[in-house]
Design a protein around this nucleic acid. Sequence first.
DNA 1: ATCGGCTCGCGCAA
DNA 2: TGCGCGAAGCCGAT
Length: 457
Amino acid sequence: MDNNTTRTVALNAVGNTQGDAVIYVMSRDQRVRDNFALLAAQKYALDRKLPLMTLFNVYSSVPNRSAAQYAFMFSGLEEVEQDLAAKQIAFLVKVGDAKNNILQVARTHHAAAVFFDFSPLRGLTALHEKVARSVGIPCFVTDTHNIIPVWVASDHQEWAAHTFRRKVHKLLPQFLAEPAPVTRHPYTLQQQLTNDWTQIRAAATAPALEDYRPIVKTGEKEAGKNLRHFLKTKLGRYAQQRNDPNSDSLSNVSAHIHFGQLSSLRVALDAQKMLAQHKDQGVREGVQSYMEEVTVRKELSDNFCYYNRTYDSFEGIPEWGQKTLTKHRTDHREHLYTLEQLEAAQTADAAWNAAQIQMLRTGKMHGYMRMYWAKKILEWTEDPESAIAYTIYLNDKYFLDGYDPMGYTNILWSIGGLHDRPWRQREVYGTVRYMAMSGLRRKFDLDTYTAAWQNDG
DNA sequence: ATCGGCTCGCGCAA
DNA sequence: TGCGCGAAGCCGAT
């Protein structure tokens, strides 16, 4: 298949193979609706009159994760299991090493082909390559996380949002199209597959969070509810108030999008529909502003991680940022905090502590505060490498949307000036954009925010 | 309250 | 080769 125009590409050069089933290895896109990887696997199976099965692999131990993230994922997967059963598509969850499990399941079921959904993160791309090399049957990967497949949108790492935006706007009309529905699959496996969710939950251990009260509920249906509620009641003020953490103007679907419970194509299609239904100026500006987030800024993060394999380290920073941070490496730091102090929200900065506590309590932090939060960690640690490592540790452990290209891109934007331009030189930051508490006060009522998120509150 | 400068390099026009 | 302009700002001058 042609890499430049298609959503699904071949991972190896193995020709058509005989077999008894087609396997879709679900990973990043944990949904049945609007899932082009599932659709591609189903078409391949229908063409050959074969049963279709979906395999999900759970690693038994992943560093920097919390029980909250696993709970969110497993409940969503139980919903996936039901939705697949309604379509006569088998669903199997395996625990352990992904490569071994995929190879074993492919062998046991005499698979004819394997389909993956796409992620630019190193663990996933490496897994896809390893399986494609050793499984001996055709393997494919489908980008159903991005509206425009990452390899179609651009063939290189983009410099900034403005260089990417032109390409996105040119391609968007052909990709903002309604996906076909998954059909009831006519061919089924000989034996019925079942999953023991108690056993699966017990096998994936991660530390529980104290005092944790998520503000979003998990699952494909809940994601749809959040989205509809946002479009109906918040979109009109989104453009004006999305940077005010007190205003509750956001869609609250980032965790669902991260786990693939909701596709950003669905989000964009539903947001676009609001234009036809509303003449109200606020709604029209809201659509434009929200579409910018969903189609340009979000997809830019996949572009970055896909084309820059050092997306989570100092080396991922553009050259000017590395140079300026190196020049200011030994600058005096007003405060130095350990990772433990940061994790416990024990700094001298009330705004920062509030943001950290918001994250610990809810698995979320307001988008505007995420930038301030990461930039201050640069200011308060011994060097930029430590700042990046600490921020990624906290990001991946506590955010429900952790372990995502969005997080790494935000962190390198904040700490290293990725996708940004240089600003006035100052201590520690060099020419990387600085943010100050006085700026937060200018933009919103900071005292209301800090009062809402207090230690022992 | 508002405004210009800070500071770098991509991408396009010429 | 020149030039406009950019992922969410800050600061000092007016």
